[in-house]
Every structure is written in C-alpha cells, then in structure tokens.
C-alpha cells in the first residue's frame, strides 16, 4: 500500500509551482524532502491535503489506490493523510481535548464505531506524557498563545492520536529546541512501522540524525531532481544547494 503521486502539477494564483511532480511512498517508509526556500515543498503538502488556494492542473495522487485529488480536505484526511503544518493555525475557544475528539468522532461517524470518553482521555494523556506536553494543555485553545515549539508538538500529538496511514511533516523541526527535537523525533519513531508512511520536509540534517530516512529527495524548481539514501542529506549539508542550481537550473 502506498501513496502514489504521478505527474502532479499545481499552481497558486495562476503561477505554476509543481511541475510533473512524481513520488511514491509506501507505508512503513520514511522519505525526507529537502530543497531551497520557495521551491514548492509546502505546496506539495498543501495540494495533497486539498487546500482550496492550490489548484491541481494535472496529474494524480492515489492513496492506497484511491484518487485524492478533487476531494474535500476533510475527506482526504479521513482517508488517512495527515499534515503537520509549517505554520500551525490558532483556533480560539476550541480546546485541544475537544478538537482531537471532534476529529476522532468525525472518523467514527464514517466507520460507525463508538466513542468512549474514558478510553479517549487515557490515550490522550499517554500521548501527551510521551510528548512531554503538560496535561493542563488539554483545556487550552488549540495553538493559542503557544510558543513555536509547543505548536509543533501539538501537531505531533494530533498525529499520534489520529494514527494516519501517511503523514507529511512540513518543517516540524523548525523552532524546536534540542530537547523538543528529540521528543518529537521519538514521537515519529514510535509511530514508525508497517502502518504508516512518512514524508519529512526539512532544511536540516540534524532531524535526520534522529529519524533515519529510507530515502532523501532533493526538490528544486517544483520537482524532485535527485534522490538517494540518508547520505544524500549529509552531502547537502556539506555542499549546500549551489551545485543543484548549477546542475538543474536550466529546468527552472
């Protein structure tokens, strides 16, 4: 089972950002995507998640065989795609506990399962403890007044609770202190296994020391220009993107 992205082209505000983008992520795999600012990494994540500002002008994306392009964002999410935001949004008045609960019950409505409040809080507290999020956060409004790092951890908490089959983490490491980085990485590693495929968008090799990727891709000008193993990230860290531009600049 895999997430298959074929020749995906995406524009925003009439400007084409992704061009014939291809990537296949199987459950159980961890793919890292690196690339210079503005190259379309977040665009990829948001287009897959069906953000209304992004228009898919061509290509397909199959999640375990089901086409997700053209679906509403919530339908894509319930099919199993999760996205941790580069900039998580604040939602005043909606507590973390109620929010995650609403997300879970939306899934249960579809599957016809029952919601148990005790089981829910047990699971929620366990995940919060693991992510070292104080329990009083359950009653705080989602992301409101959170520090940058707390927001990222809150996203990872949601991921842990919703158990997606594919998760795209968009610069989840940015803004994290050294301890938080390790905690978040532990959270991901804990979920790592045959059930979940990960796409990890990052600028820094450091995260990949904690989460060992199976593949590293270099994105440039709206497409993947080079793929390799974990060692590719080290190479990028060392050499920067200058050589990519030299080699692939003509494509842009």
């Amino acid at each position: 089972m895999s997430l298959n992205i074929n020749n995906l082209s995406v524009s925003i505000a009439e400007r084409q950002i992704l061009k014939d983008f291809n990537l296949s992520v199987s459950r159980g795999e961890v793919h890292a995507i690196m690339g210079p600012n503005g190259t379309g990494k977040s665009t990829l994540a948001k287009a897959l998640a069906a953000h209304p500002d992004y228009t898919v002008t061509g290509g397909t994306a199959l999640l375990d065989g089901a086409e997700i392009i053209g679906l509403e964002p919530d339908a894509v999410a319930r099919l199993g795609l999760f996205m941790a935001f580069q900039y998580p949004v604040e939602i005043p008045g909606v507590s973390i506990a109620n929010f995650i609960r609403a997300a879970l019950t939306a899934r249960l409505k579809e599957s016809g399962g029952d919601f148990s409040a005790t089981a829910y809080y047990k699971a929620l507290y366990a995940q919060m403890d693991a992510l070292k999020i104080p329990r009083e956060f359950t009653s705080r409004s989602v992301n409101v007044g959170f520090s940058g790092g707390e927001k990222k951890r809150c996203d990872i908490l949601q991921m842990a609770m919703l158990k997606p089959s594919y998760a795209i983490l968009d610069e989840t490491d940015s803004g994290l202190d050294i301890d938080a980085l390790r905690i978040v990485a532990d959270g991901v590693n804990h979920m790592r296994g045959p059930g979940t495929g990960f796409v990890i968008i990052t600028h820094y090799q450091r995260l990949l020391n904690y989460i060992k990727p199976d593949y590293v891709h270099v994105m440039y000008g709206g497409r993947i220009v080079k793929s390799g193993g974990a060692e590719l990230a080290l190479e990028l860290e060392e050499k920067g993107y200058g050589w990519v531009e030299k080699e692939f600049g003509v494509l842009v």
């Binding site: 998640a49 953000h51 209304p52 500002d53 509403e72 964002p73 919530d74 894509v76 999410a77 319930r78 999760f82 996205m83 935001f85 998580p88 949004v89 604040e90 939602i91 005043p92 008045g93 909606v94 109620n98 929010f99 995650i100 609403a102 997300a103 939306a106 899934r107 409004s141 949601q158 919703l162």
Partner: peptide, 24 residues
C-alpha cells in the same frame, strides 16, 4: 480560511469546523 482548512485537515467536515469555531 486557514482555520477551517486546519480543522478539515484533521478530518472534520467544513460545517462542523465552522461550528467549532463559532462555538469556540
């Protein structure tokens, strides 16, 4: 729109996301 998208990305339908925000 970003708030609604964030909530929808968690699987919550648009109308429900809207009521969550309003109830909040």
């Amino acid at each position: 729109e970003e708030q609604i998208f964030y909530m929808q990305q968690r699987g919550i339908p648009e109308a429900e996301a809207m009521s969550l925000a309003v109830n909040g």
